[in-house]
Computed example of a mutant assay.
Amino acid sequence: MSVPPIRTLLVDDEVLARLALRQALAAHPDIQIVGECGNAHEALQAIAALEPALVFLDIRMPGMDGFKLLHKLKPETLPMVVFATAYGQHALRAFDADAVDYVLKPIDQARFDQAVARVRRLWAGLHVAVAPAGTAAPAPPPAHAQRISVRVGESMRIVATEDIDWIRADGNYVHIHVAGARYLHRETLSHLLETLDPQRFLRIHRGTLVNVDRIREIHPLFQGNAEVVLRDGTRLALSRRFRAQARQALGMS
C-alpha cells in the first residue's frame, strides 16, 4: 500500500509568510499544498471543504487566533498541525494542543525539514494502521534530527544534536545536557529515540541516552553493570541490559 501525498493547507495573515512556507515545502514533493488562507475564518471554511491532512498554522492573526481556530474544529475533522509563528512563548501551549511540531519564523530550512519528517512519520504510521491484512505501507525515508528546539524562558533555543552531551528521561519530558547547561524539553525519550541518529546516540540505561563522542572511559562494576565517564567528568550508569549494545557501539572487546 502506497502512502498518499499529504494534502496541506497554509494559514497565515501575511502573504510573505505563506510564500516562505511554500518555498520551504518545495523540498518535499510528498506535501501537496491544496490551499492558502489569510485568517482563521477562511481556514474554517477551507478545512471543511478541502479536508486537508496537514495545516501549517500561524498563531497571532487578526480576529480569531490559531488556538481558537483549533477549538472550533470537531475532533474527527482535526488535521495534523504544525504551528509556524514568530513568537516562541507559545510553544508549550502549542504542544498541549497536540501540535505535531512548532517552528519559528523566519524559517530555518533544517529545522523545518525536521518538522516535516515528524509529520511524515505520523502520516505513514496512520496508513500502516489502516492497511489491509497482509499488506504494509512502505517505511518513510530515514531522517535524523539535526536540531532540537528547547524552551528557555519566553524564547526558544535551537540546539544542534551533535552538541548534546547526554539526555535523561523524566516522564513525558527529558533533560537535555549541553556543555554544562540543562534544558527541560517536552518530549518523551522513546520519541527522541526515533529521531536521533543511532550512530551518534547510545542508550546506556532505560532512561539515559549519551552522545558516544562524549564518552571518555567505561568502568566495570559488579553484576555486569558499569559506569560511563564523559569527557567533562559526568558519571552515568551503564546497565547490564544495554552493555552489549555499548560494546558494539564503542568497539569494546
Score class of each variant (00 low, 15 high):
residue 180 G to K: 08
residue 150 V to T: 04
residue 62 P to R: 12
residue 83 F to T: 04
residue 182 R to N: 01
residue 135 T to S: 11
residue 46 A to C: 12
residue 125 G to L: 08
residue 183 Y to V: 09
residue 10 L to G: 10
residue 3 V to D: 01
residue 41 H to E: 13
residue 38 G to Q: 13
residue 8 T to H: 10
residue 113 D to R: 11
residue 2 S to R: 14
residue 73 L to C: 15
residue 222 F to P: 03
residue 152 V to G: 00
residue 159 V to T: 05
residue 92 L to P: 05
residue 14 E to P: 07
residue 192 L to F: 07
residue 71 H to F: 14
residue 173 Y to A: 09
residue 97 A to S: 15
residue 31 I to K: 13
residue 114 Q to H: 13
residue 106 P to I: 01
residue 108 D to T: 07
residue 210 V to H: 14
residue 7 R to W: 09
residue 14 E to S: 09
residue 77 T to Q: 14
residue 86 A to F: 03
residue 74 K to R: 15
residue 194 E to W: 04
residue 21 L to P: 04
residue 166 W to Y: 06
residue 87 Y to V: 09
residue 237 A to L: 14
residue 244 A to C: 07
residue 235 R to P: 04
residue 201 F to H: 08
residue 78 L to C: 13
residue 184 L to E: 03
residue 175 H to C: 00
residue 159 V to S: 01
residue 50 L to D: 02
residue 93 R to I: 13
residue 159 V to M: 06
residue 90 H to V: 12
residue 243 R to D: 10
residue 95 F to N: 10
residue 45 Q to L: 09
residue 5 P to C: 10
residue 62 P to Q: 11
residue 98 D to L: 12
residue 159 V to K: 03
residue 195 T to P: 00
residue 163 D to G: 10
residue 252 M to T: 02
residue 179 A to V: 11
residue 242 F to N: 10
residue 125 G to R: 14
residue 133 A to H: 03
residue 232 D to E: 08
residue 114 Q to V: 08
residue 228 V to M: 11
residue 36 E to H: 12
residue 81 V to M: 13
residue 215 I to N: 06
residue 195 T to R: 12
residue 23 Q to T: 10
residue 219 H to F: 11
residue 74 K to T: 09
residue 51 E to Q: 15
residue 12 D to M: 03
residue 121 R to W: 00
residue 48 A to F: 04
residue 19 L to H: 04
residue 117 A to N: 04
